[in-house]
Every structure is written in structure tokens, then in C-alpha cells.
């Protein structure tokens, strides 16, 4: 583990340790009650998922056209984090829905889009796991298609929903709430960077082990 990873990890832990305090101090939202606090977890998670998914798509594109192994390491690490943050988003989403709409699952445009994006990246990981040799390139093609697909998913799901309009409870973000929300977002960013550092390092080492294994066979 390199030095900057330690620093990042320390910072992430510090941010996470302070987050509950800030969230506790944020104003109490009357319609949603305590459940509104999920929001500080849910929205940053969803944002992370989207950004990392875009990053995975870009890295896959770089890998496909330049064949640089590092791009593939980043793409794979990113895909795993998309699934991780996606899981957070999709667990907290229904909790919110239960309170706001009275049902566990609501075909809300953003939640549905998140579910689809999450599915695409699980499919990507399945391909990487079970596709056999050459699945790195196939995965890269898949991730590139996922990247191009994001706007289509959003637009189609959105219009699919708004044809049957429904009132939604979207909290307006008053500044005292925005502060803790971005604080939590920063915590997630730091955590994501730590995970990236570790996972990419691990992939690099795996590649080195492969290379050494091949070299050892040389003799």
C-alpha cells in the first residue's frame, strides 16, 4: 500500500466520522421525518454511481483503441464500484419510496434508470468473470455501449413515466441540508479513491504475477 493511499484512507475515515454529526445537526424535515436523513446517503451514492459509470466507459474506450493495460485496470475497478454504489442507491431508494409514496418500489425515472445502469454493470462483471480469454476487450465494448446508453435510458424511462404523472416528494435543498450532503459526497469520493488505488494496484500486481509466471516458464 502506497503512502498516498494511507493519507486518502485517513481523510476518508475522518470525513465519515464527522458525517453523522453534521447530518444530525441538519434541519429536521417535517414531511419525511427521520427517513429524510437517508438522503445524505442516497444522493451522493447515486451521483458517485453515475460519475464512475461514465469514467468506466471512457477508460474502456481508451483500452479498446490503445490497448493500454492500465486503462483496463481502471475500467474494471470502476465497474465494480458502479455496482457497489449502485447497491447503496438501490437499497436506500426503496426506503425513501416507502415513506414518500407508501410503496417499497416506485417506477420513478431516476430510480429505474439507476437500476438499469446497475444491471448493465453487473452484466459487465459477469462477462469479465465467465467470458474466458479475451473478455477484457469484449467488456470494453460493452462498457462503451453502456456509456452511450445512459442518455437513452434516462430519456426513455423519464418519458415512459411522465406519461402517467404522479406527484413526487422531492425535498428542496435548503443550504443547511446541502452542506452535510456535499460533505457526505466528499466522503464517498475519498472512499472511492482509496478503493481505486487498492484495486488498480491489485490488478497491476496480478498482471505482474502473470508476467513473472510466464517468465519463470521461459527457463
Amino acid at each position: 500500500m502506497r503512502k498516498y493511499t494511507h493519507i486518502l484512507l485517513g481523510a476518508a475515515l475522518l470525513v465519515f466520522a464527522l458525517a453523522p454529526v453534521l447530518i444530525h445537526r441538519a434541519p429536521y424535515e417535517s414531511t419525511m421525518g427521520l427517513v429524510q436523513k437517508i438522503f445524505y446517503f442516497h444522493l451522493p451514492g447515486a451521483l458517485m454511481m453515475l460519475f464512475i459509470a461514465l469514467f468506466a466507459g471512457v477508460m474502456s474506450g481508451i483500452f479498446l483503441f490503445t490497448k493500454k493495460p492500465w486503462a483496463d485496470h481502471y475500467a474494471l475497478a470502476a465497474a465494480e464500484q458502479v455496482v457497489l454504489f449502485g447497491a447503496m442507491t438501490l437499497v436506500t431508494g426503496p426506503l425513501w419510496a416507502r415513506k414518500a409514496w407508501g410503496v417499497w418500489w416506485e417506477w420513478d425515472a431516476r430510480l429505474t434508470s439507476s437500476l438499469l445502469l446497475w444491471m448493465i454493470f453487473i452484466a459487465y462483471l459477469l462477462l469479465r468473470r465467465f467470458g474466458g480469454p479475451g473478455s477484457d476487450k469484449l467488456g470494453a465494448g460493452m462498457a462503451l455501449f453502456a456509456l452511450a446508453n445512459v442518455p437513452f435510458i434516462y430519456v426513455s424511462v423519464n418519458y415512459w413515466r411522465t406519461l402517467h404523472p404522479k406527484t413526487t416528494v422531492v425535498p428542496n435543498l435548503v443550504p443547511p441540508m446541502a452542506g452535510p450532503m456535499w460533505w457526505a459526497f466528499a466522503g464517498f469520493v475519498l472512499m472511492s479513491l482509496v478503493l481505486f488505488a487498492l484495486r488498480v494496484q491489485q490488478e497491476e500486481q496480478r498482471a505482474r504475477v502473470e508476467a513473472l509466471y510466464l517468465a519463470a516458464n521461459e527457463g
Partner: peptide, 28 residues
Amino acid sequence: FAAMLVRARSRDVMLPILLYPITVPVII
């Protein structure tokens, strides 16, 4: 997807797994 899966293992399973999530906008 079907063309690139020709060389992959478990291609029969992989095709729908990759294809359906990506083509949801078409279906909708």
C-alpha cells in the same frame, strides 16, 4: 454482441445478459 461473443466462453448465456439491459430503451 453476438459477433464478439463468438470466441467467448458461455456465449449462449452471455448474449441475453449483455443485450437485454442495453436494449431497454428500444423496448420502452
